[in-house]
Design a protein around this nucleic acid. Structure first.
Lengths: 126, 126
DNA sequence: TCACTAAGTAGTAACGATTACTATTACTGT
DNA sequence: ACAGTAATAGTAATCGTTACTACTTAGTGA
């Protein structure tokens, strides 16, 4: 993988974003710097950056894939009302059952679902 | 929601399946009983059964959505080699951070990624 | 029992996120 | 400078899923 202005920009945008953007959101943000970048280029670079371990993906309930550049160990909270994804930094250890079953664990993804603080407050005040 | 032969068959197939099938896999299995069922009917019923809480979905890394009829509390292990999804029954408690943040947690999904026992054994013997 | 009505269905068209393709451009080592 | 190869822009194609339409069926109330 050799360096390219487009891929650098995609990674830069993702590292500066804390809202787990989708490919088209990243596309819009990168376009501010490189107006003629193509959506295909964004997708291709997201794929490569993922394969190389520079970014991760968050499978949301909607049809689009969400990306994130924060590789710090954390989990996600997904609000059913506003559909925002919040980062939650907390401990999580691998269950003993998995090694007992003979599986080799390399990574994990945990998502909690519910109603976020903002939405709860709004409901109460209505 | 009133009863229909098609929806009953979809739920029946899913409850009898332990491999987290995709919509087209469920379609094929239901077709053995109802040969002229339409794929759209399968999708519609899967959506309704999900909304009503009779089934759940597993977001895999591939493009297709996986479904399951086993509502028992458990998590999943996804093998990066064979892409099989294994059920893992173990304890998992909600992190204190979430309630501290003011979020109301209703459900959770945890997926571990790695290499399953079968694939590890095959690699060793090669 | 018998319509009535709203939910469900089969079949097909449409949608939309993602991927593939192609001609062109830009790195990089020699 | 140049050859070789990776990357890009723009566009076409793919394919899982959803929407639509005319027709069927289950449940209800007289």
């Amino acid at each position: 993988m050799r360096s390219s202005r487009q891929r650098d920009a995609v990674l830069e945008v993702l590292r500066a974003s804390y809202d787990h953007p989708t490919a088209d959101m990243i596309f819009e943000r990168v376009r501010e710097e490189i107006p003629n970048i193509s959506l295909g280029t964004v997708y291709r670079n997201l794929g490569q950056l993922k394969d190389e371990g520079f970014i991760t993906v968050v499978e949301s309930s909607d049809t689009k894939v969400h990306y994130e550049g924060n590789l710090t160990d954390h989990i996600h909270f997904l609000c059913k009302k506003c559909h925002n994804i919040t980062d939650v930094f907390c401990e999580s250890k691998i269950p003993a059952e998995l090694s007992k079953m003979g599986h080799e664990v390399q990574s994990q993804k945990t998502v909690y679902y519910g109603v976020c603080k903002n939405c709860r407050d709004n409901i109460k005040s209505n």
